[in-house]
Design a binder for these strands. Sequence first.
RNA 1: GGAGGGGUGGCCGAGCGGUCAAUGGCAGCAGACUGUAAAUCUGCCGACGAAAGUCUACGUAAGUUCAAAUCUUACCCCCUCCA
Length: 417
Amino acid sequence: MKYKSSFINEAVARGFFYQSTNIDGLDDYLTTSGRLGYIGFDITAKSLHVGSFIQIALLRLFQKHQHKPVVLVGGGTTKVGDPSFRNAARPLLSDGEISENMEGIKLCLLPFLKFGEGESDAVIVNNADWLDELSYIPFLREVGCYFSVNRMIGFDSVKSKLDENNSLSFLEFNYMVMQGYDFYELLRTKDCRIQFGGQDQWGNIVCGVELVRKKLGKEVFGFTSPLLTTKDGRKMGKTANGSIWMLENMLSSYDFWQYWRNVDDADVIRMMYLFTDIDLDEIKKMENIRGQELNDIKVLLADEVTAIVRGRKSLDVIHETATAMFSKGVGNISSDSSVPKYSLKKSELASVSLVDIIVDGGMCTSRGDAKRLLRNGGVYINDQVVSEDYKILPDVQSGDCVKLSCGRKKHLLIMIV
RNA sequence: GGAGGGGUGGCCGAGCGGUCAAUGGCAGCAGACUGUAAAUCUGCCGACGAAAGUCUACGUAAGUUCAAAUCUUACCCCCUCCA
């Protein structure tokens, strides 16, 4: 074991560590339990998505090693907007939206962290509580004087915006000052000396570390984790169909599970380390698995992650649905699986076209789209390709089920009533 | 405030009076191959329509023209330089 603290050891072994302001100092500091460490989350949406997953998992690990996670929600900073690596300024949110989003964020975190009053129980704070109160002139005199603009424009987050000829408003430029101030405030009021974050937060974190050192002469620590990209370089948690949200009302458990079931071969083991509670030794044994067998590992990954985020009991229905979706025939689709259903009166059989059902059932966005799919041979009825827009489905009776498929992965169960 | 450059489909980016629903790339969808992976190859990729075709769309609004993404004017926004 290279490090003295159990947390740092495991965090490094699992791949959470990218860089730190002083890893040895931090290691020493964490040999005593009950230390505080925080991560800030912006609250631009009602739910966190998988992009923030690594941060949440890190806090969870922190708590597992008897330390106290502090979740900082950016009620104040969200009103400013982090300019980091975005080419469009974020839309500014109203107070109403912000407080609504904040409730959602809390829900997302409940499965991961134990909140409460105990020594290692997580707490949640909102930086609006102190940022909203600041008065401009005193703030500039007490805090602003410690920030060098020369230095700030050197930070990647700012530099990339300037280099790409994008506009950077003064509002956004202040983001890192705000975030630096957060760290100072949390140190002062809670003796919180650690800030975690993604690699892209490095500049912002360093600002806080320096502010505390200059103002109070104390050392605080920054710790960043690698920015998770998939093997093809895309940001994790985003698919073409949207983000992989944590909350069930924004993404079904089945789709959540599918995301993990379909990760790239090359990413499976890394995600296993980061996102599951499976022992390091167990995962180590899986490292050499290749080829088709890796599919079982993907299922395990999907199961474990889904169990944490959505609860283990959700797995039964998911497995059932997955089996139904990927096996042929109608018989093995049970009515409690989450395969979408569509009911159709027997009397409507003659008048309703396939295209209508496809669009109505949400499988295509427009009739033209559905027709194209049909023409391209991507539509199946009971696993048989159909190439024309049948006005009438194959001879069926009331009570029958017909499986309508668009491609291999989208299915609709038509119940004849 | 002044001078110059620019705003094109989900994104990047051509086009600069008719042949433009708009080259190309990325992303996406379907098919082949497979392992619900990746890579590769093929087809598709604004809406409506069986089709002919109709409609909507090149920052916004007016205008010139038989005809405008392309020309004119005003306005809005972005970038660069100067004050």
